[in-house]
């Protein structure tokens, strides 16, 4: 197990280095930040001062060496716009995004698994077909537009929920959580639901396919032949088999949730790092974009590692073959 984790860590480290090069090279090509940062009537002296201040006058390889050196010290440069350290800027927005993504993930599992299970068990009835057809609509809904419709219905027409923003939060261990504040829940529910809708459909389809597959297996037949109740067969024999792929996929989808939060956060003005990324792209704030990418790549590597470990814990077949090798 330890060797397995170490090997995966090595792979992740390699991925990080590759991404660092890629990120730097590509970001270097983004527009000219000076055009954006300085007022249009700035004179030549002011321009040169700004270029020197931002280190843009040095050759590319120097900038890259500088970048890597600073990267190793956890310094990803100062934001052109905010003037503060870009990594801490991003990290400051991380909890809001993570909270949003995790709540959406849990929503997706809680809604998707039972619905998919029902659809799989009753695949020949109208209820099964209804769930599966609805899931295609959920699959197709453009995320941002669904958010807009939610705002129109619940914030503008019914005026039940605020149209955006994070609202009040409570602090635990120095980190702000919306979940700890009842008013925070009100602000969280729409963005989380919007982010979850696509994954709900995904989970429904996974659970549906898994259930139908399991129903054809001899072990389900044998379980019935043993005289087990259908609740035991569904709750233990089928559920345990379908949960393994679902948990794995959901874990991997956490990364895509964080990425998709870019859209949801833009619609609901949720102060997470996705919103910061979009703002930074608009303002050509290069260091913040780099910091975001490096952080996201690190997160993805971490998530993949955790999912691999989780998978091997869940599935006895994998557990054994790892132990033997």
């Amino acid at each position: 197990m330890l060797a397995f984790i170490l090997r995966r860590l090595g792979q992740s480290a390699f991925l990080l280095i590759a991404m660092a090069v890629l990120v730097f090279v590509s970001i270097f090509a983004i527009g000219d930040p000076i055009e954006v940062l300085l007022p249009a009537d700035a004179d030549q002296n002011e321009r040169e001062a700004a270029i020197r201040h931002l280190g843009l006058d040095q050759p590319l390889w120097m900038q890259f060496a500088h970048f890597v050196w600073n990267l190793l010290h956890g310094d990803l440069g100062k934001s052109f716009v905010f003037g503060s350290d870009s990594l801490s800027l991003i990290l400051g927005r991380l909890p809001a995004t993570l909270e949003l993504a995790l709540v959406a993930l849990i929503l997706a599992a809680l809604i998707g698994i039972p619905l998919g299970l029902i659809a799989g068990l009753k695949s020949q009835t109208w209820i099964g077909r209804l769930i599966m057809t609805t899931s295609i609509v959920g699959f197709s809904l453009p995320n941002f537009w669904f958010g807009i419709v939610m705002i129109l219905v619940f914030a503008v027409q019914l005026q039940w929920l605020p149209s955006g923003g994070r609202g009040p939060t409570d602090t635990l261990f120095g980190i702000e959580f919306s979940l700890l504040n009842p008013q925070g829940w009100v602000n969280l529910i729409m963005p989380a639901a919007t982010l979850a809708i696509y994954k709900v459909s995904l989970v429904i389809r996974l659970a549906y396919a898994g259930t139908r597959e399991a129903l054809l297996q001899d072990y389900v037949r044998f379980a019935r032949a043993k005289g087990l109740s259908s609740s035991r067969i569904i709750g233990v024999h089928i559920l345990k088999n379908i949960l393994i792929p679902i948990v794995t996929v959901l874990g991997l989808e956490l990364g895509s949730m964080i990425a998709f939060a870019v859209v949801t956060e833009s619609v609901f003005a949720w102060p997470g790092m996705g919103k910061l990324l979009i703002d930074s792209i608009a303002r050509l704030d290069r260091p913040v974009i780099v910091a975001y990418l490096m952080l996201v790549v690190t997160l993805f590597a971490l998530i993949n590692l955790c999912v691999d470990i989780l998978y091997s814990v869940l599935d006895p077949r994998v557990r054994l073959s790892e132990g033997q090798s």
Binding site: Q217, Y219, R221, F222, A223, K240, N241, D315, P316, R317
Partner: peptide, 12 residues
């Protein structure tokens, strides 16, 4: 049943 590879639930 016929196939003992399939009759027992693999995850229990």
């Amino acid at each position: 049943f016929q196939d003992p590879m399939m009759t027992l639930n693999p995850v229990l």
